[in-house]
Simulated assay, not measured.
Amino acid sequence: MISVQMWSDAQRLWDFQQMHHEPRPCSVGIGLGSHDLGVANVTVDLYQRGMFPLIVFTGATSRTTHDRMPRGEAEHYREQALEMGVPASAILVEPRARNTGENINFSRALLEDRRIDVSSVLLVSKPYEERRAYATARKLWPAVDIISASTPMTLSEYVDSIKDLRLVLDMLVGAQQRLLIYPDQGFMIRQEVPESVAVAYERLCAEGFTSRLVSAP
């Protein structure tokens, strides 16, 4: 159980991470690997709606996904997409990336190796990482237009789907920390963070939702 204040702070971080981009046709859709198969589902839905002709699923495994996705996040995403009717010819798999920066860089390299022209990317992530994914892609792939997308759902619905409240709040806090420290490290563009979001983040850190924080240099 968490307090009303903790939930309110988590909601504030959740709302800030949403980019509210309207999906539109792009050169390629890139599904960022994670513990959440919902990313694959949304990517497939966008593909089937004609938003892009080609999918790249990117991701190895992490401590969160090692047991549930032993063949790698991108491979499990591919299998999900095939089951949902996407032809194998429309899917590329990038199986090495272990963080968002590698997701972007390795996917870009894969597409360049295949001589696929990319002017725009529909970037699909978890709902609470839309802004982080967008900021990273804008930094590492500035020549393309980036549109962010995720499963359209509330924080409460997402927690119910993951069935692990602490994991979701830890991940929210981790995503917010990266928005604060990664611009100085050259990993993403800087995003203006409202004071109310910064305060909510600090309170959740003080409450111990810190397992996904990284050490600042």
Rank of each mutant, 00 (worst) to 15 (best):
D15W: 08
M1C: 13
V144I: 00
V42Q: 14
R63C: 06
A97R: 04
D184I: 04
R138C: 07
L13I: 15
N103C: 06
M1N: 14
T61H: 05
A175H: 10
C205P: 01
L54K: 07
P95S: 05
Q17P: 11
F106L: 13
A206W: 03
L172K: 01
A74Q: 02
W14G: 06
I30A: 05
I181M: 09
A206N: 07
I104R: 08
V42G: 09
V214R: 08
R98Y: 00
S8K: 07
R178V: 11
V144P: 01
E94I: 04
N41T: 09
N105P: 11
C26L: 04
H21N: 07
M153K: 12
L123F: 04
V193L: 14
A198E: 12
S120G: 06
S196W: 07
A97N: 08
G31R: 09
E75D: 15
V173S: 14
R12T: 12
T100A: 10
E83Q: 05
R203L: 14
F106W: 11
Y158W: 09
S107W: 07
Q80D: 09
S89F: 01
E192L: 12
R24I: 07
T210V: 14
F52H: 05
P70R: 04
R96K: 13
A60K: 02
L111Y: 05
T64G: 01
R131L: 01
E102K: 05
D117R: 11
R68H: 15
V144W: 05
E79W: 06
V214E: 11
L46R: 01
I189L: 15
G174I: 01
R212V: 15
E207T: 05
E157S: 13
A90I: 03
P183V: 08
S196H: 10
N41K: 08
S148F: 01
T100M: 11
L82K: 02
A133E: 11
F16C: 05
L172F: 07
A109F: 05
V144F: 00
V124N: 08
V118E: 06
R190W: 10
K163N: 12
M51Q: 13
R166H: 14
Q5H: 15
R49V: 00
S156H: 15
Y182C: 03
G186E: 09
E207D: 11
A40M: 03
S107I: 04
I116H: 08
N105F: 15
D160P: 06
P25R: 09
T100N: 10
G101N: 10
K126S: 12
R132W: 12
N99M: 07
R24N: 10
L32E: 07
V121D: 08
A216D: 00
V4M: 13
A200T: 00
G174D: 01
A216K: 04
G174W: 02
A143M: 09
V173P: 15
